[in-house]
């Protein structure tokens, strides 16, 4: 397993719990089915994360937003893009914790994942053995500017053009 965030390879703080048995894990990652039970047992200093399927409706997760430090969205395959939309919707609905993409993504999807609201990627070993953290870093920003507004990316082209128009229209000096 390899965990990657904006800074490069990251240290895994989370431990996968067996069902809802979170014991005294400081960062317990549970499955969607076990979430209500795990939250019942949660002590005040414990953090809970949940791994959800990419087909989960955002409304199902919304009531738990305040109690969750991490949501990991499963990517069954890199070509299954549902997780990008789910991440985007969870951010819009107000989830402020860490968003993780969990599955065999490829480095060329890193920017897309960040733009849709993800913070980190958890790669299975089979992918990590071929694709180094360095390759993931190098894939960032390959397309220096993109067109879409409303995504987590600085200075999209439409906003840049708007700024240029404003500068051209403002009085000299």
């Amino acid at each position: 397993m390899l965990l990657i965030d904006r800074e490069g390879s990251a240290t895994e703080a989370w431990t996968r719990a067996d069902g809802a048995a979170i014991g005294n894990l400081s960062h317990a990652l549970v499955g969607w089915d076990a979430l209500p039970e795990a939250l019942d047992q949660k002590s005040s200093d414990q953090k809970i994360g949940v791994l959800v399927p990419n087909s989960l409706p955002s409304e199902a997760l919304k009531p738990f937003f305040d109690q969750l430090a991490l949501v990991a969205i499963g990517f069954p395959a890199f070509a299954d893009g549902r997780g990008f939309s789910l991440a985007k919707v969870l951010r819009r609905e107000g989830f402020r914790g860490t968003l993780r993409a969990s599955g065999p993504l490829i480095p060329d999807q890193f920017d897309y994942a960040i733009a849709c609201g993800f913070d980190e990627i958890e790669l299975p070993e089979a992918s990590a053995s071929r694709q180094s953290a360095l390759q993931w870093q190098q894939a960032r920003g390959r397309l220096s500017r993109t067109y879409q507004r409303g995504y987590t990316r600085d200075g999209n082209i439409l906003d840049r053009r708007r700024l240029a128009r404003a500068a051209a229209n403002s009085p000299a000096g």
């Binding site: 893009g81 990008f84 999807q109 920017d111 897309y112 849709c116 397309l143 879409q148 082209i157």
Partner: peptide
Amino acid sequence: RQWSTAHPEFSYL
């Protein structure tokens, strides 16, 4: 064309 190019959310439909 511009909006749909390298769209972060809609490139793996």
